[in-house]
Write a protein that binds this DNA or RNA. Sequence first.
DNA 1: ATGACTGCAAACACTTTGCAGCTCG
DNA 2: CGAGCTGCAAAGTGTTTGCAGTCAT
Lengths: 167, 167
Amino acid sequence: MSSASESLQPLSVSLSPQERFEEYLQTRGLRQTSQRKFLIDAVFSEHDHFDADELIDRLPRRGQENYVSSATVYRTLREFVDAGLLKSFQLDGRTVYELDYGYPAHDHLYCTRCRKLIEFQSEPLVQIRDEVAAEMGFRVSGHRMIVQGVCKDCGKARRKKRKQDLV
Amino acid sequence: MSSASESLQPLSVSLSPQERFEEYLQTRGLRQTSQRKFLIDAVFSEHDHFDADELIDRLPRRGQENYVSSATVYRTLREFVDAGLLKSFQLDGRTVYELDYGYPAHDHLYCTRCRKLIEFQSEPLVQIRDEVAAEMGFRVSGHRMIVQGVCKDCGKARRKKRKQDLV
DNA sequence: ATGACTGCAAACACTTTGCAGCTCG
DNA sequence: CGAGCTGCAAAGTGTTTGCAGTCAT
């Protein structure tokens, strides 16, 4: 039995993302800046997948309060990944980010119709991964799996549409 | 038991890649050209993963016999994917191609040390994928899994090096 | 103060595209 | 002959980088 679920539960963590990042910065002699504080809030207020462009879109524009240049957004996203706050992966040519800190490991179903990413967890999947790797003398550090197809909603919509077409 | 293996066996197919592609072109009113013929040979002579740049590198240069412009290489690679001859996926920002026609479905271990892609097949993996998808009402059309880590050889090399460091 | 950070613009790597001429069917 | 193809160069993406001024510590 696989442990798929519609929405994943956050893990309980002792430090907030902000605190965690502060720690990360301090141990490396890096600095707290208003941009970094603002970005961490922006990123952790949305519990969804996003790419740099989407993030920039919902940030203040040039000239407005709290504007952050795209260069800094790109730079900071990479820092968040280094700090273990975010995970990133490639999808359709661009880099997609998602929460990592305080969030359980999981994989994705990708609906090619509505381009939605749906999360799932499967312990057996990880077991098989490790078995295969062990057989081949490969030391696993992680993996990325994306299942393409059509999600429930789009499947429904499609069937409905077909019925209408017949009328 | 997973069916991992060091090297995958080609499937037996009734048409050669060339014939298959010819068929594809004809059914769509597209044309056989010397460039397309040359590229299909170049691609199917190497049974390895490659990106557009690597392919272009081992092709004749501008001015030489059988030169093909990079624009055409990119265009043709996409056609090969459409025709079901090649598969493509993203790795480290670039598009990686591999044989699909006459080659069994498989997944990859990716060595982050030597950047080698190692193939494996696992039937249980596919079963679990389908179970999870079914539970979530998702119609699967395919998947892509990449396991990151360190391969056997690099693991060896590393251990050796560590021993030496101790001397 | 001083080294890190930011914004800007330019550079980048990879890929796609417009166009004029060439070629297959 | 005409639609499709190719090479070229230019244009696009998405992302990174050099630099000069600014700011946190």
